[in-house]
Structures are given as C-alpha cells and as structure tokens.
Amino acid sequence: MVTTATQRLLDLAAIAAASRDEDLLLQLLEEANALYQRGFETLRGVVARRVDGTSPEVLVAVVKAAGLPCDASQDRDELVLLLALTEWEMTPAALAYSEMAEDAARRGVCLVPEE
C-alpha cells in the first residue's frame, strides 16, 4: 500500500494528538515538517509552471486578486512564492501540519529550541 505525503501528514497529526511523550511528539513534528516542506516545494513548482509565460503585470494582478500585498518591484520568484504559499496553506496536508504544530506548541514542544 502506497501512502501519500498528505495521508502520512494526516496520520502523523492523529498520532501526535494522542501522544503524551514529548520526545515522540518532537520526532513526529520533525517528520511532518519535512513532508510539509517537500509538499510546498512541489506545489511551488506546479504554480511556477502554471504561470509560466504570464506577464509580470498580470502576475501582480493575480497576486493582488488573491488578497496578497505586492507590487511591481517584486521579482517573478517572489510572486510565485506568494501564490504557492496561499494555495498550499489551504491544502489538507498544510492544515494538518499547522494544527499539529500549534497543538505541540501548546504542550511546550517546538522545532525551534528556546534560548
């Protein structure tokens, strides 16, 4: 059986929610973060291909229509990144990861160590 990255993220989120072990929670969060980053990079590539050939003016208009602040001085990569991030944040994988990270933070577990 093949598990997709989205399914794995959903599974990790469910395991994390039920876990009381901080070390396990951190391991789950690390794996989920790697899947989140890979998924976002994949989607960023899809968005870049989708808008390939779009004029800078139209691309700025698309970003603004998505409700994101931007201006014509931003380069194409920045605009693609904004569009991809907006789209990615609404995916089940990203939503599961965000909820998992927020829950872990409430329990004092975070990928960024406190100083």
Rank of each mutant, 00 (worst) to 15 (best):
L29E: 01
E89F: 03
E99M: 02
G45T: 09
R44D: 06
G39A: 13
S55T: 15
G39H: 11
L85I: 00
E114A: 07
A17V: 02
V46P: 03
F40E: 04
D11W: 03
L111V: 00
V112M: 11
R38C: 05
A61M: 10
V58Q: 14
Q37R: 15
A17H: 11
E102C: 03
E22P: 14
A13E: 07
E22I: 02
D52Q: 15
L29S: 08
L85A: 02
L26R: 14
Y36T: 03
R38K: 14
A14R: 14
T4P: 04
R107G: 03
D103K: 03
A14L: 08
W88E: 02
T86N: 14
L111Y: 01
D52K: 12
L81Q: 09
L79P: 00
V63M: 09
V47R: 07
A18Q: 13
V112T: 11
A84C: 09
D21Q: 10
A65P: 01
R8W: 06
R20H: 06
A105M: 06
L29C: 01
A101K: 09
L95G: 00
A34G: 08
N33W: 04
E57V: 13
V2P: 12
A104G: 06
T6R: 11
L68S: 07
A93K: 00
E31V: 07
P113Q: 06
I15C: 01
G45E: 09
V58S: 15
E57I: 08
E115F: 08
V2H: 13
T42S: 15
E30S: 10
